[in-house]
Design a protein around this nucleic acid. Structure first.
Lengths: 225, 225
DNA sequence: CGATTGAATATTGTATAAAATCGACGACCT
DNA sequence: AGGTCGTCGATTTTATACAATATTCAATCG
């Protein structure tokens, strides 16, 4: 099984450690590594055919991203998220994403909106296919495309982390279909309002959209918990 | 010259790498390592009397914190903050800190307020001594003490990073005295309002306080730039 | 004289080996 | 029986050795 960084050309201007971080991150998002599961340096190094040194660097990186937890001399485990964590993630999104939208949307060109709507079209298609994994990716793509012109790199970095974290739960099929349909409508509404340059209104819809998704997620967790 | 982690007892439940990160972080905050200055692994390892491996981990950690920048095969440099970066830091503080205050303040006990006011007293004393370094520490302490009961660990983590980043500039003597005096008054006002359980009003003062500090900082930068 | 190429050197990135730490199991004492 | 201490194996952490990459600077060519 070839991994991403093995197939990359030798001219790749990235370190092995960075690629290893990508590979491990993907394994976590794909559920290949479940919550609480220990990440043994030996095994990861052997699996990727590299030594433990870059693995260690990758783990430090992933801990900073909040994906894993490292305890000295005990090792790294995939960080399980509590209900409180999920609530906080969406609280942050609720605070930050509208800011990005209002900064970015006025600078988006017609071509940008076309691109965004193409994402939404594929989203709708995948919705019918129940392809949750791809849906999550598209959802993240949609949000980041909206914020592309915000010129707030630090806020962007935080929001990107939050989006991937959210994605982790949605990929676990934590959302039910009516929630997804509602999201579909709200996404379209946001784009429409932005095209009409009603940015404040779009931000309002975004705010309530995030609250709805949050409620939907927490409702699902409550049902099964 | 002994470093923090060398004097620590051998039972310290921290890794050498983590302590090295602390030491390097301190060097940056204290201005011992200036903006744009390269961090050579060799020298740091020799200085701390350890090998390069834990130094590398510390650097990865510090990059994740946004303090340095690492380019493959070129090395790490202290990240210089642009005016835009400073603006964004304060924009984030303006967004997030009032949320923490409103969450935390209702849970603060009388003893907590006493503690906070003790910090402010020392702050005032140091203000007369023009001890900028200690002032910065106390300022950060004041804010974090206010948010102690917020129970929002992720937001706290972000704000803590923002506060230390802000501290870096204030330590560089970037604030003039009248700004500091004004901050002194606003801090006291926030505490007073919280004691009276007027939390929303306190949050408003905090918001304008952050904006004032931001303006003061940018004004100073503009003057010298 | 300026631009360019290529070896020498400095520095980072990775692999491997050594040291330190933790958890568990079992012997021993009370 | 219950609890404590010490040893062993597994694992992480650090050190050292080696490889890859970038930078410097002098020699060469136009």
């Amino acid at each position: 099984m070839s991994t991403a960084f093995k197939t990359a050309p030798p001219f790749s201007h990235r370190t092995v450690a960075a690629s290893a971080a990508d590979a491990i991150r993907r394994k976590i998002f794909d559920g290949e590594l479940k919550d609480g599961e220990p990440l043994r340096q030996d095994l990861l190094a052997a699996e990727f055919g590299i030594s433990r040194t870059p693995i260690r660097e990758a783990l430090v990186q992933l801990e900073a991203e909040g994906l894993i937890r490292i305890e000295p001399h005990k090792g790294a485990v995939v960080r399980e998220a509590s209900v409180a964590d999920i609530e906080e993630i969406f609280e942050l999104r609720h605070l930050l994403e509208p800011v990005l939208l209002e900064r970015s949307a006025p600078s988006l060109a017609a071509a940008d909106f076309d691109h965004i709507e193409a994402i939404l079209d594929e989203y709708s298609a995948e919705l019918r296919n129940h392809n949750v994994k791809r849906w999550g990716e598209l959802n993240t793509l949609f949000h980041t495309a909206l914020y592309a012109k915000a010129e707030r790199p630090q806020i962007r970095a935080i929001v990107d982390k939050l989006l991937t974290a959210s994605d982790r739960y949605t990929r676990l099929q934590l959302l039910h279909t009516d929630g997804l349909k509602r999201a579909e409508k709200e996404h379209a509404e946001i784009v429409t309002l932005c095209r009409k340059r009603k940015f404040a209104a779009a931000a309002d819809v975004l705010r309530s959209h995030i609250l709805v998704v949050k409620a939907s997620l927490l409702d699902f967790v409550a049902r099964r918990g």
